Simulated scan of single mutants.
Amino acid sequence: MPESRHERQPAHVCPHCQSVNRVPAAKLADQPNCGRCQPPLFTGAPIELTTATFTRHVERSDIPLLVDFWAPWCGPCKMMAPQFQQDARLLEPKVRLAKVDTEAEPQLATRFGIRSIPTLALFRGGREIARQAGAMGAKDIVRWASSAVVS
């Protein structure tokens, strides 16, 4: 049955211009572009979030947001970074991956009570639904995120 024009289409925040785009779930596999600035909405890479952009992505997007809280001086964070990068290609567009540098954005680390890094936090519907501290391998990240999204 075709989608009615009155049905609400899922919202996705553009990682480039931060505008909210409405894209039917069936069209996400077609690699949609932002209606405002035109680059792809999903790039297969984690996006960098700041205090200014974080809330918009958590509250305005209808897909889960997996955030890696990290710091440039953290050895385990550096070891996990390529795994997290790889997982963006596997999980998008079902889950958006993002990174928050806790050194550059200490307000976000404080707001979410980040006590150790790396810490992965999964958000859906504007709230945190799961958290995992410590470095993980690529397969473990995908498995953990997928099981948390389903539950």
Rank of each mutant, 00 (worst) to 15 (best):
120 L>T: 01
139 K>F: 12
132 Q>L: 13
119 T>N: 04
62 D>V: 00
103 E>Y: 02
90 L>A: 14
113 G>I: 00
90 L>Y: 05
138 A>I: 08
46 P>M: 07
147 S>P: 07
38 Q>C: 12
133 A>L: 07
96 R>E: 03
92 E>V: 00
59 E>C: 10
55 T>M: 10
39 P>C: 11
42 F>L: 02
68 D>K: 12
58 V>H: 09
26 A>D: 14
91 L>M: 13
144 W>G: 07
148 A>N: 09
89 R>H: 09
41 L>V: 00
52 A>V: 03
34 C>F: 06
46 P>A: 01
51 T>I: 01
118 P>H: 03
128 E>F: 00
87 D>A: 14
99 K>P: 10
70 W>L: 08
145 A>S: 12
127 R>N: 07
71 A>N: 04
99 K>I: 01
138 A>W: 07
19 S>K: 13
41 L>C: 03
85 Q>W: 05
151 S>V: 07
109 A>W: 07
146 S>V: 11
62 D>I: 03
146 S>W: 02
72 P>I: 00
69 F>V: 04
63 I>W: 05
121 A>D: 02
3 E>S: 12
66 L>C: 08
50 T>Q: 12
8 R>M: 02
66 L>Y: 08
106 P>I: 00
149 V>G: 08
12 H>D: 08
131 R>G: 02
61 S>T: 13
112 F>I: 02
5 R>C: 06
115 R>S: 11
123 F>G: 08
68 D>S: 10
139 K>I: 01
